[in-house]
Amino acid sequence: MTAIPASIRWLVESRANGRCEYCLLPAAVSFFPHEVDHIVALKHGGKTDPQNLAYACWRCNRFKGTDLGSFDPETGGFSFLFNPREQTWAEHFQLQGDRVNGLTPEGRTTVHLLQLNSGERMAERQRAAANRVDDDL
């Protein structure tokens, strides 16, 4: 594991407005602290550079691991995962109540691989909405 300097951690967290860049869960309601994720893992040649780092909740980071992509559950074709440095969340996902819907192959693949609609994930979004931590949820 590569040590990420505190200044870069702060930049990644502030750029994400304190919420996971994959599922949008605010860090304030997460049971475990959010983490800095290498979008392209070091083992795939990714760098510890702000352009390759995302702020991720522990669930998203664990489910993503070092994966770069998977299979779109709708088409069965290979798709890369959503990349928060190169893509816009609202173009790939839609929040309907407590459920995240993938709108594109990248969105659907990310929803599936990161298990964004598991019972625990939906309960987290309900708790965030009830606590009014983030108006976007």
Rank of each mutant, 00 (worst) to 15 (best):
W10Y: 10
D136R: 15
I4W: 05
A123Y: 06
P105T: 06
T109Q: 06
G107H: 02
N52A: 09
M122E: 13
N83G: 06
T48Q: 09
T2H: 09
R121K: 13
T110K: 02
E86H: 10
C60Q: 04
V133T: 15
N61H: 14
F63K: 11
W10K: 15
M122H: 01
V36N: 08
C23T: 08
V36E: 10
R125P: 07
R15Q: 11
W58S: 14
P26A: 03
M1A: 11
M1S: 13
R99S: 04
E124K: 08
S14F: 11
K47T: 14
E106V: 01
S30W: 00
G76R: 10
L114I: 10
Y55T: 01
F32Y: 12
H92I: 01
F78M: 00
N61K: 08
G69P: 07
A16P: 05
T109L: 07
L113P: 02
M1E: 06
A129E: 10
I39V: 14
D135I: 10
L11W: 12
D67Y: 11
D135C: 00
F82D: 00
V40N: 10
K43Y: 00
V133H: 12
C57W: 03
L116C: 05
Q87F: 04
D135K: 10
T88K: 14
E124N: 14
P26S: 10
W58L: 09
T104E: 01
E21A: 05
A130M: 12
H38A: 03
